[in-house]
Every structure is written in structure tokens, then in C-alpha cells.
Write a protein that binds this DNA or RNA. Structure first.
Length: 651
RNA sequence: GCUGUUGUAGCUCAGGGGUAGAGCACUUCCUUGGUAAGGAAGAGGUCAGGGGUUCAAAUCCCCUCAACAGCUCCA
């Protein structure tokens, strides 16, 4: 009616429009343009995402969400999960449902098929059913429901998982959503109707524990992804294929960087010559920076007596799940493969009395450690059982913690920047306030350590996310997380403040007051581990490493065997300038040699034939770019060294 | 650790109850070639390992190991 109350809707462009009370997101969109109305998937009302069909009853700030908004996609995929569930219920009567959320890319639904096995071969039929249901353009209908009615609905259906979820919900806050013949317990929101879902692909199937708890039953998790257009699905699948080509396990084999052997053992990488050279370069790069940053190198053994880990607390915490103790001919004598370097470093600290003038003491070691990771966790070089940490422990006074922490952040950022790791996130990992028993140490120490990390991160302007319950058992951490080619997240650099170990090892120093004090320890590793870092480096660069790291920097390609001597001469000149590579003496045509050099990702090809030999030149070809013309060998050396200098700045 | 899938030549993969296949790589020979694959011949496998069914098993069944995907874990 004309005297309907009016409400004010603020839109993202700053405009404020008036609509009758009860207007929906869809109606607002329609008043702007028909095209927008067609594309609206949901509406963000005062910061909360709503169905675009839900009436707005008061003045509000509204953002209309489309496929271009992350929240629009999330809604689309969540609704797709419901569509999957509807298809499953149609094809597998009696199926029970766990949860079915959207993901960063796609969605899943956890289901219990009552012992019936489902495989990827069944996907085609399920996808077809989903397509059929999508074409029905069924609306997603929201329905608030009382707790009692919700319980009776799912009791009748016999779905104990939904009943368990309802159990944790508050009466009056419960909603159901129905599309077609399928009704689900769901907070929403959803897209207007199933017809918007045009392209459907089920991608994977795997087990997942109910409510993420190992003690619970394992459900079948079905993953999928959907798009509003077929073309977008095709593009997505293409991208996934491209990403697979960057997988470090594949490239590591192809480029002969590392290998695994069943006989050596699971999760124990073998570094091949090219990989070892790459790794050594990375090590010396960091060693150089650390020397400038005031670190002192130390070297400690690969094993330590069990007593060392009893003192550190690692024995109690991880003893059962570690490689088991090494015995000696001496009864009762036991050693452990070291799972961490810190206890050894604490003993180095204790080799002499320390004065406050000695602090901070920064002890650095590329220390190889061994951890018995769960077999299901092992993954290429990113999760292994023997790996080398670019470890260091900073022993300092309480008043130096923040300054030291800041200096470590700077070092980590330098490392990341030099290696082109721009896409990282900084995560502050604190202890789980609900479960303090998992950790050692007093509340006071934890609070001091946690605030030191939070302050230092803020001071360096890091964009951080905070995760509760992710701390190490002895202290909070600042972790630098990156993603691999397939989008999985891994921790690389880490900085941890620790008040516990100094206590357990009775570390002390004499202060200016001539009294004994306890130092604070900072554990830190900019790479994290050489193995994982190199894995990510391989994936980031697709195996095309920066010139200074490349195992072979140049290859010399003689046109024929007649120029072999000249090729050797050029090679030795370059080798004298520390330029790495080899001469391709094979009895092949130049086209073939070029192709093989391209495939093995050698940055520079130096072609030598009659013309080059007679004029003392080399013809330069850059991988991926092609012919750069001819130049004198000396000029190439200058050019080459300038290249390296440009992307390898010092700390 | 759990659930599922997979395991055939150095690599990528086809095959499938009746003597083991291809391409690339490798070896030898021919070719001495100018900017992304020259030609020919040859060699190479206990079909992951163990057990079972069968006249016969690489193939079917069971166990073990490993890899892969996800979950759980991660000092």
C-alpha cells in the first residue's frame, strides 16, 4: 500500500536509497538494473550475508553479492553442496549427511552411505543427476523451525549426524532450507535457485572423520566444484592441470634434484648432485646474511643422550612417537636421533658463564633432525622424516626480546624477498585457552611471550592472522605460511619465543647487578627446513630457478664436433669466473641440443660454430626467450654477472 | 595412524587366465648438421613383495610394502 513504511538502504557506492520495508536484496538489485538482478547470488546486510530473497525490515547497509565477490562464490558453492546432497539422496536412498560447506575453491559434503562403497566411477551418474535437478530451477527456501520440530524431522529421517548438530544449537536460531525434494538443517544463506548452477564437476572422494575427530566414525567426503558457466569450469580444470606440472615431486625427478628409495626408507630424501648444489647455494646465501646479522656458527651431533630430551621435555611430549632410542653395548645407555637442535644449543650456552654483555648470543646451525612423522603425512619434500633446519637460537635478556624479534622478522623478509616469495601470510600461533594442559610453562611466561610476538609483528606492519591452539608446546610462534602449486598451505619460516627451555636447562647470565638472571630464548628458522623450502621454491619457479641458484647456469652447444675445442676453451674461461655449466658434446644437431637445454631449463645457451670460433664470439640464447645475438666471451661474463647482482641483493 | 585409489622397462603409459607391449631415455653405427626432436639397429622387465585359487596367474582372491588423495597429527 502507499502508506507502507519506508526504510533507507545504503549501498557501497555511498548512495542511500529508499525502499518499502520488507524489500529484498533481489528487489534492490532489480531497481538498479535487470542485469544485476539476474546476477545477484546473495545480499550482505549490515555485514551479514543473507539470501537475496530475504526481506529487509529496517534501515541497513547492503552490498549485493555476485559471482565476482568471494562471498558470492561461497554462497554459490554452499548451495551446490545442497544440490549434491539432493542428488545423492535421490540415487542412494537412506544416505545420511554430515556437513557440507563451501571451500576456497568448491565445496564438499560428508556423507554416510551405510557401508556402501562409493568411487569416482559413480561420479558421472551423480553429476548427471545434479544437472537434472539444477535444470529444475528449484528455489532454495528458508524456513525457521523450532528445535523440537527439527529434532522430530531428523529423528524420523534417522540422521544421527544432523541430530547431533541440532543438539548444539539454540532453539529459535534454527533454520531449514529446502530445494526440490531435499531439506537440510542449514544456517544459509543460499543462492536464489538451482538453475544458476550450470557447470558441475565432482573432483575427489576421501574419508574424513565426523566433526574432525579421530575418535569418530569416518564419513565419505565428496568434493566438487561448480560454476555459472561451462567455460569457467573448463578454465578451472585447465589451471589445475597447469598447477600439477609445477608439482615439486614431478619436477624434482625430471630435473634430477632429489629422489626417494624404498630401501633407504619412507620420508628420507636423497639429494642428487644438482639438488645438493642448489641446496648448498641456498645455505651459503643465508650463512652470509646471518654472519652480517651477528650469528655465530655452531655444529652439533645428530644424536644426543636420552637425558638431554628428558630435560628439554621432548621425551615426555614426543618420546613414544619418535624414532626409538639407540642402544649401545653399555646396558641402560640410550641415545636419541635429534628431533630438534635447541637442547644441544642450550648445552653450548652452558659451556661457560655468560655475562649480560655477551647477550644476545645467536647460535646458528644447519642442523639435521629426524622426526617419526605419521606415514599418511609424508609428502614429497614438504613433509619428511629427516630434514635440515636453518636453525638458530638467540639467547637474550628480557629487555632485548622485542628488538631481537624484529631483527629476525627483517631477516625472514629479506630471504623471502630475495627468493620472490611474495605470496605468504604471517600467522601468530597462540596456545589454546581451552586446553592449557597441552603446554608447559606458567601463564605469566606465556603472556609475556605472546605479547612480545604480537607487538613485534604489529611494529613491522605484518598482516597477520591469529590461530589459537597452534602454538608449540613450549611457546607461541610467528609462522610464515605459503601455498604450494596445488593450494595447500605450508609453514616455512618460523620465530618462537621460549621461556621454558632456559628454565629447564638452568641457563643463566650475570647481570649488571652482579646477580644471576635467566635468559630468554628465541628459536628461529627463516627457511624452516631446507627440504620444504626448496619444495616450495621449485613450485613457485616451476623449476626455473633464479640464475644464481640454477644448478647449470649455462650450456655450450657446439654446432658440430669440429668446434668442440673452441667450446671447451669458452667453457674453461667461464668456469674461471664461477659460471656453472657444461658442454653438450653429443652427436646431435643444434636444434636438438637447444630443445634439450630448454626442456632441462638451463638459463643460457651458448652456441658456437665456425663464425663464433673465427671471431672469438659466442651466440647467446636465453631459455624461453630465444636468440640474443652474438657477443665476446668477456662481454657475456659482464652481462651474466650483472644479471646475478640484480636479483641477489645483500642483507 | 584412518578411509579410499593405484603399483607393468630409467620415465610416461597401453594391455590383461595361455611365451610381455608402445613412445621417450639408453647403447652402437650412419650422419658433421646454424637456433625447440636427423636416420638405422640393439639392449632393457620375477608385471611392487609374499601367499592362495587354477592344468596354467602379470591378469582372480588374501596379506604385506610403497606411492597418491583427503582426514587426523606436526617439537
Amino acid at each position: 500500500m502507499s502508506d507502507q513504511p519506508i526504510i533507507k538502504i545504503s549501498l557501497p557506492d555511498g548512495s542511500v536509497r529508499e525502499y518499502p520495508k520488507g524489500v529484498t536484496g533481489h528487489q534492490i538489485a532489480f531497481s538498479i538494473s535487470e542485469g544485476l538482478a539476474r546476477n545477484v547470488l546473495a545480499a550482505k546486510v549490515n555485514g551479514e550475508v543473507w539470501d537475496s530473497s530475504r526481506p529487509i525490515e529496517a534501515d541497513a547497509t547492503v552490498t549485493l553479492l555476485t559471482w565476482n565477490d568471494p562471498e558470492g562464490k561461497a554462497t554459490f558453492w554452499h548451495s551446490s553442496a545442497h544440490l549434491l546432497a539432493e542428488a545423492l539422496e535421490a540415487l542412494y536412498p537412506g544416505v545420511k549427511f554430515g556437513t557440507g560447506p563451501s571451500l576456497e575453491k568448491g565445496f564438499y559434503y560428508d556423507v554416510d552411505l551405510g557401508g556402501q562403497a562409493l568411487s569416482m566411477e559413480d561420479f558421472a551418474a551423480i553429476e548427471a543427476k545434479m544437472q537434472e535437478l539444477a535444470r529444475g530451477k528449484n528455489q532454495y527456501l528458508r524456513q525457521p523451525i523450532s528445535k523440537a520440530d527439527a529434532i522430530s524431522f531428523f529423528t524420523e529421517k534417522g540422521d544421527e549426524y544432523k541430530l547431533e548438530l541440532i543438539d548444539g544449537l539454540e532453539d529459535g536460531q534454527i533454520t531449514f532450507y529446502t530445494q526440490g525434494n531435499f531439506t537440510d538443517l542449514c544456517r544459509g544463506p543460499h543462492i536464489p535457485n538451482t538453475g544458476i548452477i550450470k557447470a558441475i564437476k565432482l573432483t575427489n572422494i576421501a574419508g574424513a572423520y565426523w566433526r574432525n575427530n579421530q575418535e569418530n566414525k569416518m564419513l565419505t567426503r565428496i568434493y566438487g566444484i561448480t560454476f555459472p558457466k561451462q567455460k569457467e569450469l573448463e578454465e578451472h580444470l585447465h589451471q589445475v592441470e597447469e598447477a600439477k606440472k609445477r608439482d615439486h615431486r614431478k619436477l624434482g625427478k625430471e630435473l634430477e634434484l632429489f629422489a626417494f628409495s624404498e630401501k633407504v626408507g619412507q620420508g628420507l630424501p636423497l639429494w642428487l648432485p644438482k639438488g645438493a648444489m642448489l641446496r648448498e647455494r641456498l645455505e651459503s646465501f643465508l650463512k652470509k646474511a646471518q654472519l652480517k646479522a651477528g650469528y655465530l656458527p655452531v655444529v652439533t651431533p645428530h644424536i644426543g643422550s636420552k637425558a638431554l630430551y628428558v630435560t628439554s621435555g621432548h621425551w615426555e611430549k614426543y618420546g613414544k612417537d619418535s624414532f626409538q632410542p639407540i642402544k649401545t653395548p653399555d646396558e641402560d645407555e640410550e641415545f636419541m636421533l635429534k628431533p630438534m637442535n635447541c637442547p644441544h644449543h642450550c648445552e653450548i650456552y652452558k659451556t661457560k658463564p655468560r655475562s649480560y654483555r655477551d647477550l644476545p648470543l645467536r647460535l646458528a646451525e644447519f642442523g639435521t633432525v629426524y622426526r617419526y612423522e605419521q606415514s599418511g603425512e609424508l609428502h614429497g619434500l614438504t613433509r619428511v622424516r629427516g630434514f635440515t633446519q636453518d636453525d638458530a637460537h638467540i639467547f637474550c635478556r628480557t629487555d632485548q626480546v622485542k628488538e631481537e624479534f624484529l631483527r629476525v622478522i627483517d631477516l625472514v623478509l629479506y630471504v623471502f624477498k630475495t627468493l620472490g616469495f611474495n605470496d605468504y601470510s604471517a600467522q601468530i600461533s597462540l596456545r589454546d585457552p581451552e586446553n592449557k594442559a597441552k603446554y608447559i610453562g606458567t601463564d605469566e611466561d606465556w603472556e609475556k611471550a605472546e605479547s612480545a610476538i604480537i607487538e613485534a609483528s604489529a611494529e613491522r606492519g605484518l598482516a597477520t592472522v591469529t590461530e589459537l591452539g597452534e602454538a608449540a608446546f613450549y611457546g607461541p610462534k610467528l609462522d610464515f605460511m605459503v601455498r604450494d602449486a596445488l593450494g595447500r598451505k605450508w609453514q616455512l619460516g618460523t620465530i618462537q619465543v621460549d621461556y621454558q627451555l632456559p628454565q629447564r636447562f638452568n641457563l643463566e647470565y650475570i647481570g649488571s647487578d652482579n646477580q644471576k638472571h635467566q635468559p630468554v630464548m628465541i628459536h628461529r628458522a627463516p627457511f624452516g627446513s631446507m627440504e620444504r623450502f626448496i619444495a616450495i621454491l621449485i613450485e613457485n619457479t616451476a623449476g626455473q630457478f633464479p640464475l644464481w641458484l640454477s644448478p647449470d647456469q649455462i650450456v655450450i652447444l657446439p654446432i658440430s664436433e669440429k668446434y668442440a675445442d673452441y667450446a671447451e676453451e669458452v667453457f674453461f674461461t667461464l668456469q674461471d669466473q664461477d659460471i656453472r655449466g657444461f658442454v653438450d658434446h653429443r652427436d646431435e644437431k643444434i636444434g636438438r641440443k637447444i630443445r634439450d637445454a630448454e626442456v632441462t631449463k638451463v638459463p643460457f645457451m651458448l652456441i658456437v660454430g665456425e663464425k663464433e670460433q673465427s671471431e672469438q664470439l659466442v651466440s647467446i640464447r636465453r631459455k624461453g626467450e630465444g636468440d640474443l645475438g652474438s657477443m665476446k666471451v668477456e662481454d657475456f661474463i659482464v652481462f651474466f654477472q650483472k644479471e646475478i647482482k640484480n636479483n641477489l641483493t645483500s642483507f
